[in-house]
Design a protein around this nucleic acid. Structure first.
Length: 585
RNA sequence: GCGGCCGUGGUCUAGACUGGACUAGGACGGGGGCCCUCCAAGCCCCUAACCCGGGUUCAAAUCCCGGCGGCCGCACCA
């Protein structure tokens, strides 16, 4: 099976996906639209099962809250989150044929280096240096411009009411923080999960199911106190091994991941947040449950210029795929308090959390009081936001900068405001505090469901005796059990249908098939990953036993019909090995 | 720096260079039947396609242009 060449394998999977109804390109009858795929009957089931597995592992077992918020989002939300400013990619246009391309991707193809995070000028300079041309017609390229990848729309009949399709589900969580914090009964830490459709107007998606314009993201925002960032469950995973490629080593030119325990990774500062480390272990195990062995995965830290605008540290979980090389399946960002802070600035809501002291403390505090008049004079409509932003900034920083430079550069939603002495009154006061108000920090594990789906298929794909066997993990199989009468006579179909109905009643996903030869029916089920086939033969009519046939070994055992639901229950829910099932019967 | 290739039933493809007998062939799949069977057996019947639009021509799957979609190589870099 490993002798398959990489394109071969991918082609075979894509073909299987179309032929058996896992997925295909959308809008085929109109020539297709790149960046969109349809999930077919089996694909839709498999996708849901992967999502369900994720909910089971993260929401149920980790005690997170699952929510579901809209795709369409009013523009102010993404102004606050910074996406209207930062969710952009450099696009360059061919002077000859007019085609548009991701400038950094063209450079990357050309040089093999990564060019994320360069300025437009730097990019253009590099493009000229490397003589990057239009891949389609060889024409000269214009200097790149930033293209915002948010899908824009209007809400209702008023064209000025702009909305965007969300590029991540996270903002639906952040904008609900207050209510969710209430539902968490006012205690940190707590986590919120969401799985849903997102849209990103990619400039030129060319990697099939890997780079989509409409995708499903499953993400968690885990809120914790930055002054008490300990993960209380870290001891459970401290000896777990992670394959890591941290920034420190990347900068030294290391290209192979190292294997370290979680404890070491934290001690060496490879991973800065315990909560992120904890979820990285969970992510490794989750991906393993999809059939992708841990030695095929590793986590690579994003360099500062590659990171998203909100991130303090990000690791990508990568996996090796046959055609597309190493591909990100999940990202693990430490989002600091960026999002909540910006939503405070834009909404005016207090999204801080009150953490009481054991007893009240008298403290001297430096206070920064915004001077409304001066702010309005200099910042007009933005004055209110500037003033909110000011009160959320460490007063000491402001004073230090004012003292040293005469001004302070207040950074917010992609803009920088120059604050001078006249904008603020600095006061030192003695106050009695009963507790502190903090903006929680956020650990964000974020998974791309479509990529997980593809990777699952690829790692399940195998061939045996010239036919395809899809070795999906049993709990992911879209069809769990197939029921076949050995022949279509002597009452075998009737008996088989009874067994089929009984299994349906017990909640299994079952398929009945009586067409063609028995071997052909087994083969069909192997190809779509059905783990168990139940066959009704002449012996069934005598002693009420059926055969169970294992997808991976093609071995068979006989089981009493009455014991069938229980046996399958053991197999699917309790993960009893096929060969041990016989002993139970 | 440069170039190239491809799009035909559900899937894989023949046909294209050299336009006409193509009513578009095959294999696999799928449906029905025979057979009555534990790993894609065999036989019969059926099913279903030239990516879209325009042009050239008496005639276009075939040539030209445009669109949509898919893909690759050399060189360079490491």
């Amino acid at each position: 099976m490993d002798c398959l060449s990489s394109t071969d394998k991918c082609q075979k999977i894509m073909e299987l996906a179309r032929r058996r109804g896992f997925f295909w390109q959308s809008y085929e009858i109109y020539g297709g639209e790149s960046g969109f795929i349809d999930y077919g009957p089996l694909g839709a089931l498999l996708k849901r099962k992967i999502e369900q597995k994720w909910i089971d592992e993260f929401v149920r077992k980790e005690g997170l809250m699952l929510i579901d918020t809209p795709i369409i989002t009013p523009s102010i939300v993404f102004e606050a989150s910074g996406h209207t400013t930062y969710f952009t990619d450099p696009v360059t246009t061919c002077k000859k044929c007019g085609r548009k391309w991701r400038a950094d991707h063209l450079l990357e193809e050309k040089t093999g280096e990564s060019f994320e995070g360069l300025t437009l000028e730097e990019l253009y300079k590099k493009m000229l240096e490397n003589n990057v041309r239009c891949p389609e017609c060889g024409g000269e390229l214009e200097s790149p411009k930033f293209f915002n990848e948010l899908f824009k729309t209007t809400i209702g009949p008023y064209s000025e009411n702009v909305g965007y399709g969300r590029p991540e589900t996270a903002q639906g969580i952040f904008s609900n923080f207050k209510r969710l914090y209430e539902l968490a009964r006012g205690k940190l830490p707590f986590g919120v999960a969401q799985a849903g459709r997102c849209v990103r107007n990619e400039i030129s998606p060319r990697q099939g199911p890997i780079r989509l314009r409409e995708l499903t993201i499953m993400e968690i925002e885990f809120f914790f106190d930055p002054e008490n960032p300990k993960c209380e469950k870290i001891f459970e995973v401290k000896n777990e091994k992670l394959r890591l490629l941290p920034e420190k080593l990347l900068l030294d030119g290391v290209t192979e991941p190292i294997e370290v325990t979680v404890e070491e990774a934290l001690k060496n500062g490879y991973i800065k947040s315990e909560w992120n480390a904890y979820f990285m272990v969970k992510a490794k195990k989750f991906v393993e449950m999809l059939g992708i062995p841990s030695e095929k995965q590793f986590f690579k830290e994003k360099l500062p210029n590659e990171r998203a605008h909100y991130s303090t540290q990000t690791y990508d979980q990568l996996v090796e795929l046959s055609r597309w090389g190493t591909v990100e399946l999940s990202g693990h960002a430490w989002r600091s308090n960026y999002d909540l802070k910006m939503h405070m600035v834009y909404s005016g809501e207090d999204l801080r959390v009150f953490v009481p002291y054991n007893k009240p403390q008298k403290v001297r505090r430096l206070l920064v009081e915004p001077n409304k008049k001066a702010l309005t004079k200099d910042f007009g409509e933005e004055a209110l936001r500037v003033s909110r932003l000011l009160t959320l900034t460490q007063p000491e920083f402001i004073r230090k900068s004012l003292d040293e430079n005469g001004f302070y550069e207040l950074k917010g939603d992609g803009k920088t405001y120059r604050i001078t002495f006249e904008h603020v009154n600095l006061k030192e006061v003695e106050v009695e505090e009963k507790g502190k108000r903090i903006i929680p920090n956020v650990a964000e594990p974020s998974f791309g469901l479509d990529r997980l789906f593809y990777a699952t298929l690829e790692y399940a794909y195998s061939e045996k005796d010239g036919r395809v066997v899809l070795k999906l993990p049993r709990e992911l199989a879209p069809i769990e059990v197939a029921v076949f009468p050995l022949m279509t006579k002597d009452g075998l179909p009737e008996k088989a249908k009874k067994v089929y109905c009984m299994l349906l009643d017990h909640g299994f996903m079952v398929e009945y098939d009586e067409s063609g030869s028995i071997g052909r029916r087994y083969a069909r089920m192997d190809e779509v990953g059905t783990p168990i086939a139940v066959t009704i033969d002449h012996q069934t009519l005598q002693d009420n036993t059926v055969t169970l046939r294992d997808r991976d070994t093609w071995e068979q055992i006989r089981v009493k019909v009455e014991k069938l639901p229980l046996t399958l229950e053991k197999y699917f829910r309790e993960k009893v090995d096929f060969k041990d099932l016989a002993k139970l019967c």
